[in-house]
Design a binder for these strands. Structure first.
Lengths: 247, 247
DNA sequence: GCGCATATGTCCGGTATCGTACAAAGCGCG
DNA sequence: CGCGCTTTGTACGATACCGGACATATGCGC
């Protein structure tokens, strides 16, 4: 096991830490590869590990009793899956699942709590990240109730784009339908509209974002509201034009 | 300004504190009365005060750009409105508004942060409360997407009942419709069904819960999932039969 | 007790999405 | 190169809710 080097780390929380605090974490971090569909936490189970995401993205899902999962938030290299342990949670209320290939640094939950108590910048950053994630979930609650699927799809694709960092995503409409809690054929119609408008392109499990601005126009306000919070988390000015891809 | 006496305080967080930590807060607490429709925080504004709710309940609302508010969570005597300041938030992402008459202890946000840093039990409790509130919001996100209005209405009435502590609530269907993000006439139909089933009774702005068990049966799983989390927050056994009213 | 504002019940056509089914198209693997 | 699985497009009636309107009922002030 070799220690990660901070300059080479892509997770934005780890990268933002003072070197002294990063050093406290480094020994506990294990690099892991994430495969599509892999569960990092199961709803109701103990949270034994947390994951600082390096690439790809993770979905946090609430499991309803009829067996249907529904996405409540996305976690990319700006975040940590399982961060609720620092609020004192022991069990995961949500399922966290990798929706792409990707990588992460895994760390035991108890080690994180340990270091968190001794590293004030880490503590601040994790609490602020927790808050921003909460804002994302709250916006999703409102969005689910009010906005049409076309807008929600565009919002989701933008969020996925931001977190993955590449315009070409390996995603089936089936998967997206589960995330958004709608039928696949409904996604097919909405995606077809976006495709005919020339903002995205589909090819059998691959979706390419052709016109990012067009996609932003098709999305509801919820995308921008949440993206602004995430930008503020890392100290970027919220009223500047956003970079092409925020992470 | 007279200091509150802990034994007389009804807010469950304040009541659960060790006397020494309560003493640190007591000087900063001002008793305030809340009137129906009163805003405690406005979306986007600085959070200058937090409110330990004593009676009645508060709605946390996301304001969508079309001007329509949508409720994401309820806060009663088990909680604090504005608690996100302890995560480092400066601005409120949501509107918090009193939906009933009621009372609360107000405290400046900066004083809370101050005391929070010196009072470990308070800190723990506030973080755990934050987490449980987050679970509530997440469940709401899934519920908004999947469950029918009849179930959501029953869930909401149960949550309101828990937080107000009395079976008779002063609530119009109009108000409930805004909270749930649906049209009033849709609420009228769903409420009529519940009334004909004999679980609630309506009378011009007053709604009485007649058959609490019947209402629980009419609600979706989301009520019980969240109530279990709140019970655990104050150390009650989640697998025991719930008291008639949890707060 | 009467009038009026407020609250609730109900009706209409319209639409987004459901639930299910089936057909067509793309890619992987032999 | 073609078979088969996966992915996508599309059709169909059913339904929950919308958006707006109107009628009725309740309670409050006078």
């Amino acid at each position: 096991m070799h220690r990660p080097i901070q300059a080479a780390v892509r997770n934005r929380i780890l990268a933002a830490l003072p070197a002294a605090e990063f050093a406290l974490l480094a020994d506990h971090l294990t690099r892991v590869e994430l495969t599509l569909g892999e569960s990092l936490h199961r709803a109701g189970d103990k949270i034994t590990s947390v994951f600082f995401v390096e690439s790809g993205f993770i979905s946090a899902l609430t499991m309803l009793s009829d067996g249907q999962p529904l996405e409540i938030g996305l976690i990319g290299s700006e975040g940590v899956a399982g961060v609720s342990v620092i609020l004192g949670a022991t069990d995961s209320y949500s399922e966290t699942m990798c929706q792409t290939g990707g990588g992460a640094y895994r760390m035991s939950a108890s080690a994180l709590k340990d270091v968190d108590a001794r590293a004030p910048h880490l503590h601040d950053l994790l609490l602020r990240y927790t808050h921003v994630f909460h804002v994302q979930v709250a916006q999703t609650a409102a969005c689910n109730a009010h906005h049409e699927l076309g807008q929600r799809l565009a919002r989701w694709l933008l969020a996925a784009h931001d977190r993955s960092g590449v315009p070409e995503l390996s995603l089936t409409q089936d998967l997206i339908a589960v995330m958004l809690g709608v039928r696949r054929s409904t996604v097919s119609i909405a995606a077809g509209t976006l495709q005919r408008a020339g903002v995205i392109r589909y090819q059998h499990g691959k979706i390419t974002i052709v016109d990012r601005v067009g996609l932003e126009n098709a999305a509801c306000e919820c995308y921008e509201a949440v993206a602004t919070e995430y930008r503020a988390l890392f100290g970027e000015y919220p009223d500047r034009p956003p970079p092409a891809v925020f992470p």
